[in-house]
């Protein structure tokens, strides 16, 4: 799975982009976030307050109950502030 991070989530996680092997137990965005929270200090900090974490799967905004699979591109970012 390709994972992208933007804005302060990128800074806290310390990485802009990575490819991971998805654990079999992870089937939804919520489970992916729980897995991220266990990956070390930077990730724990990035995902500490999930109220301000937004997610896109294959470049579409989705909710935390959305399914994820190994071939997806998942992006994590704060609420958008364009315009």
């Amino acid at each position: 799975m390709r994972i992208l991070y933007f804005a302060w989530l990128r800074e806290k996680a310390g990485i802009a982009e990575e490819t991971i092997s998805l654990p079999q137990t992870v089937t939804t965005v919520a489970e992916l976030i729980e897995w991220q929270q266990q990956r070390g200090e930077g990730f724990a900090e990035a995902f500490a307050d999930t109220a301000v974490v937004k997610v896109a799967v294959n470049q579409e905004h989705v909710g935390f109950d959305h399914p994820v699979s190994a071939k997806d591109e998942v992006a994590f970012f704060p609420p958008v502030t364009g315009g």
Binding site: A7, A56, F77, V80, T81, G82
Partner: peptide
């Protein structure tokens, strides 16, 4: 639209909150 603003202030960079 997935854009994020980082402001440069006298105190350093700060991400704009939605």
């Amino acid at each position: 639209a997935p854009f994020w603003k980082l402001e440069e202030t006298p105190d350093g960079g700060q991400w704009v909150d939605a």
